[in-house]
Amino acid sequence: MVVIEYEAPQSLGEAVKLLSDCTDKPARVLAGGTDLIVQLRSQVGGPQLIVDLKKIPEMMDAVLDENGLSLGPSMCCAELTARQDIKTVYPGLVEAAYLIGSTQIQGRASVGGNLCNSSPAADTIPALIAIAAECLIIGPDGERQVPVEDFVTGVGENCMASDEILKRIIVPLPAAGTADAYLRFIPRTEMDIAVAGAGVSVTLDNNGICTAARIVIGAVAPTALLVPAAAEALVGSDMNDTALQNAAAAASAASSPIDDLRGTIEYRQHVVGVLTRRAAVIAADRVKEK
């Protein structure tokens, strides 16, 4: 385990200052710790500065109003998934949060942590991109807002500087006739890392014709990928089998997975199409149920 120095600031200002003042050693922010503590345990050395964000109130709450959702990045997934109001509006996001690890992991892990860890297989990232979420980032020079699809820049990499902190996750209210869904594939029923994932948001008009869609695939490229071609396959259709099949094919074609212990290239390419089709059907059904 790496030797650490631990700080738990009470405000974002304090937290940013701790990070920007820390020039003699690596500094990491701690949210749920479900990735960070595992990483620190697998290494030796240090010291590293660990800045715990969970004592900062605005990191820990979620506000849903007429502007949409403003989510404190460090709120644990268990708290988020218990929020019926959020689940009603963004079912895909909440189901992605629910899929992260066990009950115990959800008691600590957060959407912000999942984002900032920036794993290609992160479950909430495709779900967030599907609902056009943005990241509000704070640093020594002020705040900036970045769409989630631009936030993650590579495997384990994102656009934040070492003294910046993800302050809020901002999600617009979905348009009328819109619903989202997220599916992932794992070998077991729980506890695994996604072999492939698909986040889908669809908008249907009163005749059931798809007027807009966002389709995002995960775990099949260095970052989650927005696949416009898959969305285009659905737009204008009544979500019939051919349209769904075309969307699936577009998702498979857009993927560029690797062979690893969790799946082969061919398998992931195939399954991401299956998930895209299935998630699109679920999202469309959710619109119809509304």
Partner: peptide, 24 residues
Amino acid sequence: YIYDENGVLENAGYLDYRIPLASD
């Protein structure tokens, strides 16, 4: 057990050495 080409075990943990869960 999944080994890489150098004979290093790639799934040395319960995350990827997948024993049955209650939900399985």
